[in-house]
Amino acid sequence: MKAAPEAQKRLLDLAELDAALARLAHRRSSLPEIAELDELGGRMAGLGSQIVAAETAVSDLAREQTKAETDVDQVRARADRDQKRLDSGQVSSPRDLENLQHEIASLQRRQGDLEEVVLEIMERREAAEAKVAELTAQRAELETRRDELTAARDAAFSEIDKEAFATGERRKLVAGQIPDDLLALYEKLRGQYGVGAALLQGGRCGGCKLSLNVSDLNRIRSAPHDEVVRCEECRRILVRTAESGL
């Protein structure tokens, strides 16, 4: 392939711009905010599961408390009825009177036991509600941090994208100054090796960093200035300049 020496040198400018774009892409994908947001997302997901479990526990305890309070009300109502019956003097039989008094005493003990159960459930419910409040507060803190990180990440994205756009525009100008066949070869090699063209400097390939042997240097030295030469080791385009040591 033939190409004017100046067109070949423009490949170095293009390679430099491509390297800058690659650095920007790497910088964009490796922002510390991204990693922290990922870690924060995992923590928030775990916290969300804990909140659901804690809220379920509160709901279960609320139902348990309602049932226990209903039991208390039923026993109290029955004891009140018995007490009114006793106070009315309608029970004349000593045996019936004794049985009624015994039942009232039993119901009072039962009511006391059930009230203790209600208090115990209320304490457990209060602790569960406190747990929900604590976890919810933790989630709110994480959400605030997430919003801060998202804003910082987006600001960094905007800055990097602006720089990448400007670099991409410069790349278009440089690419437009390179013959189509040479540009196509460069793009093909860049896709294969990451770098499509490199400077031959002091007898060394700037792509693979290997020194060329005497035979290859003599071959390149004798090639016409408009000949597009390649590194025998990495197959990248070698651009010759005054620094090439030929």
Rank of each mutant, 00 (worst) to 15 (best):
A22F: 06
L173N: 08
Q90P: 00
E243Y: 12
K84H: 12
L182N: 05
T241N: 09
A152H: 09
N213H: 06
R27N: 12
L217D: 03
Q65M: 12
K84R: 15
L21G: 14
A127D: 03
A130P: 04
I34E: 00
E55H: 01
D96I: 08
R139T: 03
Y186N: 04
G191F: 06
S215P: 05
A45M: 02
Q201I: 07
R171P: 04
D73Q: 06
L199R: 15
A105E: 13
G89V: 06
Q201S: 13
E33V: 07
A130C: 07
P224L: 01
Q83C: 01
L107G: 04
D181W: 08
S59D: 11
E129F: 05
H26W: 02
I160R: 05
Q108E: 01
G206S: 04
D87L: 05
I51P: 02
P179F: 01
A197I: 10
A166Q: 15
I121N: 02
D113H: 00
L107H: 02
A22W: 03
G168L: 07
D82M: 13
S244G: 14
L119G: 04
R78F: 09
S211G: 05
L100T: 12
E187W: 09
A53N: 11
A35W: 11
A137E: 12
A68Y: 02
D161N: 14
L40W: 03
S49M: 09
D71E: 14
S211P: 09
H26F: 06
Q101R: 15
E134K: 07
G207Y: 05
A155F: 09
G196L: 08
E6A: 10
S49A: 13
A151W: 03
C231Q: 14
E98D: 10
S30V: 01
E227K: 15
I104P: 01
A68R: 00
D38W: 08
K9C: 09
L17A: 08
D181T: 10
E129N: 11
N213Y: 04
G41P: 00
E6K: 12
V58K: 00
L210W: 12
G48S: 02
P224M: 05
I220H: 05
R81P: 00
D13P: 01
M1E: 13
E126W: 10
K131C: 03
A45P: 10
N218D: 07
D71Q: 14
A242N: 13
G46I: 01
D226T: 03
A164D: 03
E103Y: 09
E16Q: 09
I220R: 01
L217K: 15
D73N: 13
L212F: 05
L185R: 15
P224R: 02
D80L: 04
G194A: 11
D71G: 10
R170L: 06
S158T: 13
A15G: 09
A35E: 15
R76V: 11
D181E: 15
L200W: 02
T66E: 13
A164K: 03
S92D: 12
D216H: 14
R95W: 01
L182R: 01
A57C: 07
K162H: 09
A54N: 08
R236F: 06
Q108D: 03
H225C: 00
